[in-house]
């Protein structure tokens, strides 16, 4: 399972992760991620045929809350940390272009 993370792949993963990367990071991360993934490959030594994957150590069931109205965050509290707001709205750059 030896996996080399080359520069185009690092850039692709950066894009999927929504993280801009400098050229220097692309090269450093590529090297480091290859070494780490190579280490992860150690798991391929183990035979896991027929083993049920375990996402949680403590068995979880659906946990439902009672349907009781209660106080949630006020708009003011919810917006208090917003880097940019307009009244009761969070501000983002234009999402839909003029030509679309």
């Amino acid at each position: 399972m030896t996996q080399t993370i080359d520069e185009p792949l690092v850039r692709h993963i950066g894009k999927l992760s929504r993280i801009e990367l400098t050229d220097e990071q692309v090269s450093t991360f590529g090297r480091q991620m290859s070494a780490i993934l190579d280490y992860f490959g150690k798991l391929s030594e183990l035979d896991t045929d027929g083993v049920e994957p375990m996402a949680h150590a403590v068995e979880l069931r659906n946990v439902l809350a009672d349907d009781v109205p209660g106080q949630s965050l006020t708009p003011e509290a919810a917006l208090a940390n917003a880097p940019k707001r307009d009244g009761d709205f969070f501000m983002v750059p234009k999402v839909i272009g003029d030509s679309q």
Partner: peptide, 14 residues
């Protein structure tokens, strides 16, 4: 290869 494999090994560890 990675995530699902790790979840199986997680059960073996437990």
């Amino acid at each position: 290869a990675y995530y699902n494999k790790a979840l199986k090994v997680r059960r073996l560890i437990k």
